[in-house]
């Protein structure tokens, strides 16, 4: 079974102010896709992740894809197939940048 792991050399942190703003926006029903709530740095490359991306990133602790989707599904009002597709695309992008790895 394939598991997903954060690269331990990646330095990262959540931005608490941005996270608070996103939570307020979510309460109002506003879009938060464009707001970064975490920043990751590795090998000279920096990326910022939005709320969903950050939640996915935090779950890359050796879980399987099924495990990540099962954890996220109750938090986001979205069809499971759509969520699975989004998560997979996001993880593939992180893997291409070397921020995560897949293991069997």
């Amino acid at each position: 079974m394939q598991t997903i792991h954060r690269n331990p050399n990646v330095m990262w942190r959540e931005e608490t102010d941005a996270l608070a703003q996103v939570q307020e926006a979510l309460d109002r029903g506003d879009e938060v896709e464009e707001t970064g709530t975490s920043v990751l740095f590795s090998g000279g490359t920096m990326i910022s992740l939005n709320y969903l991306g950050t939640e996915i990133w935090k779950l890359c602790d050796g879980r399987t894809m099924d495990g990540i989707v099962a954890e996220l599904l109750p938090q986001f009002e979205v069809d499971e197939a759509v969520l699975r597709e989004d998560v997979q695309a996001f993880l593939d992008e992180l893997a291409a940048k070397g921020f995560i790895s897949y293991a069997e």
Binding site: E15, E34, G36, V39, G53
Partner: peptide
């Protein structure tokens, strides 16, 4: 992936 966010502390 987002860009141009204002961070709450420097990275370096």
């Amino acid at each position: 992936m987002q860009s141009n966010m204002v961070l709450e502390a420097p990275l370096t």
